[in-house]
């Protein structure tokens, strides 16, 4: 049969999104369990228990809360893209059905990044109210500029989905554990999620070295948008840095994807 002449790549793109949304809705409880445990435990211990014990000043919570949100977005976006992709290319080959669909192959990669972005944003939208519920009053929280908050969250989720695309294509499934120990672990601890970047004034070498870490800009951007009283990088710097990270990782991620997709 001659195929329908009206089918455009965007129709195929939307059909793939529909499949992903169906699966995401069905697996929502597992998705939330996977992505929420760590941030909620962090908030419970460092945002609620330790300040209550008097071991940490209450004001620290204003630094921690945006940082943990940043962490949630970053981890959720990376995992949503990298984990299934690594398995799909190497073990299950599930991705081949998409690679054989009538759509340019790079759009298959774009669709995965868009879905990763969406999942990062969903995580943030769930962590935010739950975190606030656990912590109670967050000193300095000012939800004034929703456009700024939305832009930082969106760019962060997109940049980390692109990082996920790259890692998912570059790392074999049996090395995913190593990836999380040796790449994601240090990224979290040197990503200014638990302290403001300005705080690193005390160790100047580290202050400039961490600028290579994309999480720094997410943490700083979230602070600027949520608790502007805490020292943070200007929005312009954060936006520009995240755009550059997105551009770089989309480019190298797409290259890696195309290499895996077309032999």
């Amino acid at each position: 049969m001659t195929p329908s002449p009206t089918l455009s790549p965007s129709d195929v793109f939307v059909a793939m999104m529909a499949r992903d949304v169906r699966v995401m809705r069905r697996e929502l409880p597992f998705f939330l369990l996977r992505t929420l445990m760590q941030p909620l435990l962090l908030m419970l211990v460092f945002g609620f228990l330790l300040p209550k014990m008097g071991n940490i000043p209450q004001a620290y919570v204003g630094t921690l809360f945006p940082g943990v949100l940043a962490l949630s977005i970053a981890l959720s976006s990376i995992q949503s893209v990298a984990l299934p992709m690594s398995v799909s290319f190497s073990v299950s080959k599930e991705i081949e059905d998409r690679l054989l669909a009538p759509i340019p192959t790079r759009l298959v990669a774009l669709e995965l990044v868009v879905m990763g972005t969406l999942q990062g944003l969903v995580t943030a939208l769930v962590v935010f109210p739950l975190g606030k519920l656990i912590i109670g009053t967050i000193p300095g929280l000012a939800l004034a500029d929703f456009a700024e908050l939305g832009a930082v969250m969106l760019l962060s989720a997109a940049a980390f989905s692109a990082i996920g695309l790259f890692l998912g294509c570059a790392v074999a499934p049996q090395h995913i554990g190593l990836l999380f120990s040796f790449v994601v672990g240090p990224m979290i601890f040197f990503g200014c999620a638990y302290y403001p970047w300005r705080g690193l004034d005390v160790v100047p070498v580290m202050k400039y070295a961490v600028l290579l870490n994309p999480l720094v800009y997410v943490s700083e951007g979230m602070r600027g948008a949520l608790t502007p009283g805490v020292p943070h990088m200007p929005l312009l710097v954060v936006t520009a840095a995240l755009l550059v990270m997105l551009g770089i990782f989309w480019r190298i991620g797409l290259n890696a994807f195309m290499k895996r997709a077309v032999g």
């Binding site: 195929p3 329908s4 009206t6 089918l7 129709d11 195929v12 059909a15 793939m16 529909a18 499949r19 169906r22 699966v23 069905r26 697996e27 299950s92 080959k93 599930e94 081949e96 059905d97 998409r98 669909a101 009538p102 759509i103």
Partner: peptide
């Protein structure tokens, strides 16, 4: 065989169809 393991048998076919318009 490389079915979409997140979908059941029927869904595998139906979503595949939608990829082709």
């Amino acid at each position: 065989p490389n079915p979409d393991r997140s979908l059941n048998v029927l869904e595998n076919l139906v979503f595949h169809g939608t990829y082709f318009g």
